[in-house]
């Protein structure tokens, strides 16, 4: 009776041991370099500076945000789901960072300056997180702000819709390091946790002084 169950138990146990050893071996062989969740810029380079407007008639050069990691996304307040989803994801990123959230700024730039005044875009993004920075400006300022990341945005008339017109726009999120260098590009739909892991890795590379 006893030998009946003992043999399979030992076989299973032995199999588990072999399996765990294989997994441990694989983990051990893995290179220690971090694999980023987005597309890494082959050469981290400082991007061309641009200046936009925030609420309270404040002009903000992008370079003035240096000293922290900056997550930059482009969109517009008229956007029904892609932009809110991105902003909700970014709010989960900063929430997950806990006390380290102060090392990251989230900047959302309107590509619809006609409808999005600096006040409106600021009101919009602070609905997701009090610390988020919403920026807009003149059409010329927006064009200059879209250039460094090659952000595309085009206006499409929609006469049959109360919207009047809608914007097609790229929906990536860009990560700048504290020196203002563009490091990583994340696609729409990326998991907040994936960005958090990248940030934690970068924090570890250059610990907070």
């Amino acid at each position: 009776m006893h030998t009946h169950w003992r043999t399979p138990a030992l076989l299973i146990g032995g199999g588990v041991l072999v399996g765990l050893a294989v997994i441990a071996g694989l983990a051990f062989l893995q290179p220690s370099t971090h694999v980023f969740a987005g597309v890494v810029q082959p050469e981290a380079a400082r991007i061309a500076d641009f200046t936009l407007e925030t609420s309270q008639a404040r002009s903000v050069p992008l370079s003035s945000l240096q000293g922290r990691y900056v997550l930059v996304a482009y969109g517009y307040t008229f956007c029904p789901d892609v932009c809110p989803a991105t902003l909700a994801m970014l709010s989960r990123v900063v929430d997950s960072l806990g006390p380290d959230r102060d090392r990251v700024l989230v900047v959302f730039i309107s590509i619809d300056p006609e409808r999005d005044t600096p006040e409106r875009i600021a009101q919009y993004v602070t609905g997701f997180d009090e610390a988020f920075i919403g920026l807009s400006g003149t059409p010329e300022q927006i064009a200059a702000a879209a250039q460094p990341f090659n952000v595309s945005y085009t206006r499409r008339e929609t006469p049959g819709s109360a919207a009047g017109y809608l914007m097609n726009h790229s929906a990536f999120t860009y990560l700048l390091d504290p020196a203002g260098r563009w490091r990583v590009t994340y696609p729409y739909g990326i998991d907040a946790d994936a960005i958090v892991q990248d940030l934690r890795y970068l924090f570890g590379q250059a610990p907070n002084p």
């Binding site: 969109g75 956007c79 029904p80 789901d81 892609v82 595309s152 499409r156 929609t158 049959g160 819709s161 109360a162 919207a163 809608l166 097609n168 726009h169 790229s170 929906a171 990536f172 696609p187 729409y188």
Partner: peptide, 22 residues
């Protein structure tokens, strides 16, 4: 809302497009 419509959002090569469903 002031207006309610039926729309479609599409992602094309990282570019978001939205249009009313005709």
């Amino acid at each position: 809302a002031a207006a309610i419509e039926i729309h479609e959002t599409k992602m094309d090569n990282g570019v978001m497009q939205m249009q009313p469903v005709e």
